[in-house]
Simulated assay, not measured.
Amino acid sequence: MKILRYSSNGEAHYGIARDGGKFERLAGSPLENLEPSGHFDDETSVVVLAPFHRPRVFGLGYNYRAHSKEVGKPSPTLPVLFMKPSTTVIGPEEPIVYPADGENVHFEGELVVIIGKEARNVSEADALEYVLGYTCGNDVSDRVLQRRESEFGCLLVGKGYDTFAPIGPVVETELDPANLRLVTRVNGEVRQDGNTSALVYDVPALIAYLSKYMTLLPGDHIMTGTPAGVGPIKPGDVIEVEIEGIGVLRNHVVAA
Rank of each mutant, 00 (worst) to 15 (best):
R65F: 05
A119W: 04
A12S: 15
V190A: 07
P204A: 10
E172A: 15
V80M: 11
V112T: 09
H221P: 00
Y134G: 12
P99I: 06
L31G: 09
A50K: 00
A12N: 15
T135N: 06
L4K: 02
Y201V: 12
H13V: 11
D101C: 01
G59K: 03
E11N: 10
P204W: 06
I90H: 02
E103W: 00
R56S: 08
L132A: 12
R65M: 07
F40E: 11
R185P: 05
L182T: 11
S86R: 02
Y98M: 08
P204Y: 12
K159C: 11
D193N: 14
G168D: 12
T173I: 12
G236V: 03
F52H: 04
E242N: 00
T87V: 10
E110C: 04
L217E: 14
I96S: 07
T196C: 14
S211L: 09
R191H: 13
P177T: 15
M83D: 07
L81R: 00
G158Q: 12
G236W: 06
T77F: 05
V248T: 13
Y64T: 02
C136F: 05
I114A: 13
A255G: 05
E94P: 04
F40N: 07
I207S: 08
G225Y: 12
F164Q: 05
T44D: 15
I115H: 02
G225I: 07
L175Y: 14
V200L: 08
G194H: 03
G188K: 06
G194D: 13
T87I: 06
A198N: 13
N179R: 12
K117V: 07
I239H: 01
L34W: 06
M83T: 14
S150Q: 15
P235F: 05
N9C: 02
F82S: 06
G15S: 15
T184G: 10
E110Y: 07
D162M: 06
L217Q: 11
K117E: 15
L249P: 00
G109H: 02
M1T: 14
A198C: 02
L111T: 11
G229L: 09
E240S: 02
L111D: 13
D237M: 00
M83E: 13
L81A: 09
C136T: 05
D237S: 00
H221M: 15
Y6K: 01
